[in-house]
Simulated scan of single mutants.
Amino acid sequence: MPTHFRPCIDLHNGSVKQIVGGTLTDDTHNSQQSASASSSLKTNFVAPPEQDAAHFARIYRRDGLVGGHLIKLGPNNDAAAVSALEAWPHGLQVGGGVTDVNALQWLEKGASKVIVTSWLFPDGKLSFERLMRLSKLVSPDRLVVDLSCRRVDKRGEGGELGWVVAMNRWQTLTDFWLTKESLAQVAAYCSEFLVHAADVEGLCRGIDEELVAALGEWSGVPCTYAGGGRDLSDLQTVDRLSKGRVDLTFGSALDIFGGALVKYDDCVRWNREHPR
């Protein structure tokens, strides 16, 4: 199957934003930000009030884009998320603070799937008990596991070069390395992976091609990659590197998010010209 463009909606304090990966910390996700916290948060785009989450959801619905991810970055985002789901019921996946306590509620509110992130990694270690419990609760078909990661090079210490899952807004490295074997273990309990390359997220400096190729080889379930996309040709590159097994999300580069590098309408056209 060919690589497709997947849309996104990132919510921060109720507004649609594009944030540079790694600058959203425990301080900056708070609505009552200090001056230092505010200066550390780097945004490429903050939507005006009339362009709320529901506005973008209606655009995706109009163009038949399914499987986009809506991520709640910190508190004060639930109302905006619900409004987007009402605008595009069963067309968006919802992540951000998802646990076994609220997962079913988000599905009932209209999410097509729930995306689980940090809750799976208590104390920075993957809990298969939590993964199995959530998978049984919502079913694997409606569960997406977020394995967003940072590149780690420990070769100078006799270690490896690779990618380690990062949690808590990509600030904390876990013990989970992305490998063919580790992805297979997790894939048994979900239907998709979502992988942000946190080191290049929001920078528009190019995708992590090695990571894309690795995901294409290792992922046994559909996978969406996000991070660094800056040109429509990245869709073709991801398709080639992953053999069509990985989808791509554009964020800050998109014109609908204030970018000047990629036209949203061109992405929609790509999907229509490369049907599945």
Rank of each mutant, 00 (worst) to 15 (best):
E217C: 05
L235I: 04
L215P: 06
L134E: 09
S219D: 08
C267G: 10
W170I: 03
N77S: 10
D100S: 14
Y225N: 11
V101H: 07
D265T: 08
K154D: 14
D208V: 06
I115E: 03
R269G: 00
D153Y: 09
L143K: 01
S182I: 00
V195I: 05
D234Q: 05
D52F: 03
D63N: 12
D141G: 14
F45V: 09
G91T: 07
A53R: 05
S135D: 06
K263M: 12
L11N: 02
D255R: 03
L178Y: 12
L126F: 07
P275A: 08
L183Y: 14
V66R: 15
N30H: 14
L215G: 11
C204Y: 05
A84W: 03
F121R: 04
D265V: 00
R150H: 01
E129I: 13
A111M: 10
R61K: 12
L65M: 13
E86R: 14
G124P: 10
S242M: 03
T249R: 08
H12M: 02
L24M: 11
A79D: 13
L235E: 05
Y60W: 04
G258C: 11
L178N: 11
R205D: 13
G124T: 08
L107R: 00
P48S: 05
L120I: 05
V116Q: 07
S34P: 02
A35G: 04
L235A: 08
A103F: 09
D266L: 07
K17L: 05
A187R: 03
V66T: 13
S39R: 15
W88Y: 15
R6V: 11
Q105K: 07
G228H: 08
E157Y: 14
D78I: 14
L261E: 08
S219M: 06
A198N: 01
V138E: 12
G244S: 07
V246H: 10
P222H: 13
A111I: 09
R205S: 12
Y225I: 00
E217H: 09
W106G: 01
D255M: 02
G124V: 11
K180L: 11
G202Q: 02
V195S: 04
S40H: 15
A260G: 13
D123S: 14
W163I: 04
L41G: 13
E86M: 04
E181P: 02
L126E: 00
K72Y: 12
D26I: 12
K136P: 09
V186N: 04
L241H: 04
Q171I: 03
C8L: 15
E86C: 07
V66L: 15
A80M: 08
N30T: 10
C190W: 02
L248M: 14
C267P: 13
G206S: 10
E181Y: 05
G258T: 08
E209S: 11
W170Y: 05
S15M: 11
F250C: 09
A35V: 07
E50F: 13
K263C: 11
Y264C: 15
D123V: 10
V138A: 12
R269A: 10
T179F: 06
N76E: 15
A53E: 07
